[in-house]
Every structure is written in structure tokens, then in C-alpha cells.
Design a protein around this nucleic acid. Structure first.
Length: 107
DNA sequence: GGGGTGACGCGTC
DNA sequence: CGACGCGCCACCC
């Protein structure tokens, strides 16, 4: 029933679809949400993340696979811990997108 | 209606 | 290899 007309809601919708054990990039979220140039908007949307428990914003990293440097939940350090809990190693606060990047085509 | 901002992406130096 | 700047779009005042 909700017609996510707002861009933000669309972004949240995509982030919620990120399966456990995988991560997505801002650009990817933006592309799935509708526009590949919303990368900045995606960052802002997650910044105002209204439902951090339902929206795994910690599964979103930049195109380099690096975690946010200003994670609002206690620093990027916190994000790394959450990712590792999902089984995603983040050496140097960085994720191997080649292996853990979310891919619509499950395999 | 205009201006400033931001958890990005990409090219270039 | 690292650092810098520009562009892009949406949201808030």
C-alpha cells in the first residue's frame, strides 16, 4: 500500500532488501532506487535513517567498499562490528566488494 | 523562488 | 600512490 513516491522511501526500500552477508554501494542503492546519481541522496537518506533496526544502513558502503567514516551509531568502527557479525570481514574497515557486494542475480 | 548542504562518484593533477 | 575539485540530485530553511 505505500506508494513510495518519496525518493528517500525508495532508497530505504532498497536498503531493506540487502540480504544478510552482503553489502551494497551507495551508487548501487541509488541505481536500484531509480537514479544512479542519487549516491549523495542515498548517503543523506541513511543519515536520517528513521528505522535503523529495519534498515541495515551498515550494509551500505562506498564504491571502494569502505565503511562510513561518520557512522551515526558510534563511528565507522561500529559499522565494522555489525558487518563482521553478518560474516563480512572488514580488514582495515574495508569490505571485499568482489565477494560480498550484493548482486541481484543471486548467483 | 533562491541558496546551502551532504554517510557519493569520477576524472584529473 | 595520494589528494583535490567538480558534478549530480534531493531535502531543508
Amino acid at each position: 500500500m505505500e506508494h513510495t513516491e518519496n525518493t528517500f522511501e525508495r532508497i530505504y526500500e532498497v536498503v531493506r532488501q540487502i540480504p544478510k552477508g552482503t553489502v551494497a554501494t551507495y551508487g548501487q542503492i541509488a541505481a536500484l532506487a531509480g537514479n544512479k546519481r542519487w549516491s549523495r541522496v542515498v548517503g543523506f537518506a541513511l543519515h536520517v535513517n528513521p528505522d535503523p533496526e529495519g534498515i541495515p544502513c551498515y550494509r551500505v558502503v562506498n564504491r571502494l567498499g569502505e565503511v562510513s567514516a561518520a557512522f551515526a551509531f558510534g563511528g565507522g568502527n561500529r559499522q565494522i562490528e555489525l558487518l563482521e557479525e553478518d560474516g563480512i570481514p572488514c580488514p582495515g574497515g574495508r569490505v571485499d566488494l568482489s565477494k560480498y557486494q550484493w548482486r541481484k542475480r543471486a548467483f
